[in-house]
Design a protein around this nucleic acid. Structure first.
Lengths: 204, 204
DNA sequence: GAGTCAAGTCATCGATTGATGACTTGGACC
DNA sequence: GGTCCAAGTCATCAATCGATGACTTGACTC
């Protein structure tokens, strides 16, 4: 998208520029709709460098699609009990900070026609979302409850990043948080939150 | 996928076979990952007939992706109040009956990197889901509430059809219905349902 | 300044894509 | 059986794709 300025010879910077451009393109269009020439043009770099530095388009995609190395937050660290809130923040995060592009999961979603991407999507959801939520449930249908809440977070991501639904796209975390906490309480079987959405006081 | 048996010359049957094959392929892999040769091979037909009968790959996709002409159910007919339940059934429906393939929305989701497909996805969600649900809300945040429930239905579809989350993929409507009704009641502000999910009696 | 090695460039490959148009063939009609 | 038109076939186009390898250029050391 944004042509990068001329750099002096710097492999690390070139790799980073390619990775950023790849993330932006892949999260906006998916694997098939993105060509290595597009990515290289955005990075202001020759397309051949992609293969020199990353080996193949597929390996570049894997590097661009994994969120594990995201330096700013990992979905499974920090406190113990505010897991749902952290997952909501992750679902609401629009793009990697400091770069254009869509939600990190969008790259996998848009490319989930490819079996490898579908596997990676499934693995990432299972590890980051379902497993973390399951720990909070001590009722029948543990897995189903966790997956239902995961589906909601996934749907919020899709609605904001792909479908671009108007109200959800412009909402911030605080707008959704009260609804989210009540629904999470229902699905996980945890006690209802104190704060209530604007439809009168919560039932005692 | 399944090679069709030899037909006598029959344009209507050939068009139908192409449309069925296109639906199956597009809902499983999206627009870019599906070639006209794939579709024609599945239909047992020469690829050139696609352009003769549908004009272009894009127009075939539009025909295959629209659910309006689905003869068996339109999302906005029938009774007045069980709209959420009908939408849940629509989200849980795996594929067009009588043919392989994924959920009808999956074709649009997988192809939403293309601007036209994103528009069509947005329009379909707005019309079939958000607008119908909005009518049921008489509280602040009408649109947001409707979109939040839409996002959940969308997420259920994605989890089942693309991510293939285990518990949700094997669940049927009756498994999810009790949770769905309680969450829908929370989001829409309607009275809580009588039947409760298996975590003890519902709060009065 | 010569030498060296990595960073970056360039031409080009084979495969596949969507699409076109001339061609052949089947079957209904008189 | 001859005619005719639509259904279906075939060869092929231009464009684009991912990928390769030989080449040039910059920056650093001695």
């Amino acid at each position: 998208m944004s042509q990068a300025p001329r750099r002096t010879r710097d492999r690390a910077a070139t790799e980073a520029a390619l990775l950023a451009a790849a993330r932006a393109r892949f999260t906006l269009g998916g694997y098939d709709a993105t060509s290595v020439r597009d990515i290289a043009r955005d990075a202001g770099v020759d397309p051949a460098l992609i293969f020199r530095y990353f080996g193949s388009k597929e390996r570049l995609f894997e590097r661009a699609a994994q969120t594990v190395d995201d330096e700013h937050e990992a979905p499974s660290d920090g406190g113990a009990e505010d897991v749902p809130t952290r997952l909501l923040h992750a679902a609401m995060r629009q793009a990697a900070p400091g770069s254009a592009g869509g939600h990190p999961l969008a790259a996998l979603l848009l490319s989930s026609g490819r079996p490898e991407c579908r596997e990676q999507l499934n693995a990432q959801l299972s590890h980051d979302y379902v497993h973390a939520l399951e720990q909070l449930v001590d009722l029948p249908d543990r897995e189903l409850r966790a997956e239902l809440l995961t589906a909601w977070l996934l749907g919020i991501t899709v609605a904001r990043s792909l479908a671009r639904t108007p109200a959800l796209s412009e909402a911030c975390v605080d707008d959704i948080s009260p609804y989210f906490e009540r629904v999470a309480a229902v699905l996980l079987g945890t006690p209802a939150p104190v704060a209530a959405p604007p439809d009168g006081p919560a039932a005692p």
